[in-house]
Amino acid sequence: MTERILDHPVLGALEPDQTVTFTFNGMTYEGRDGEPIAAALLAAGVRTLRHHEESGTPRGIYCNIGHCFECRVEVDGQQGVRACLTPVREGMVINGGGPLPAPVRDWRKNHA
């Protein structure tokens, strides 16, 4: 479980912000309006953002600044959105992706 850093000895107190409600994989969460989706989810203890398209293994943030695309999720129907760069907004519907069908490979497994 992670948590927010409310008081910081050098940076001071965390400034109050508007709270927004959003869903991730059908569950409802709260975040600070405009913070990255990845930060809102991590603050709620959610580390796994998606499962790998091929292997199905769990993935979370890696670089946190948009370079690596490990945090890609579906936001309001749009795929491949980076959770680390995208501000969370009221009512957002976010889904982590899972393994994609691989019909040719599946066929080969049983036939080739």
């Binding site: 409310l6 979370g60 690596c68």
Partner: peptide, 18 residues
């Protein structure tokens, strides 16, 4: 999940305060 670049931890901590 939980493995991240050291810069990612820095940004989470200092910028997003998580």
């Amino acid at each position: 999940p939980g493995v991240m670049s050291v810069g990612a931890a820095q940004v989470m901590t200092n910028v997003h305060r998580v």
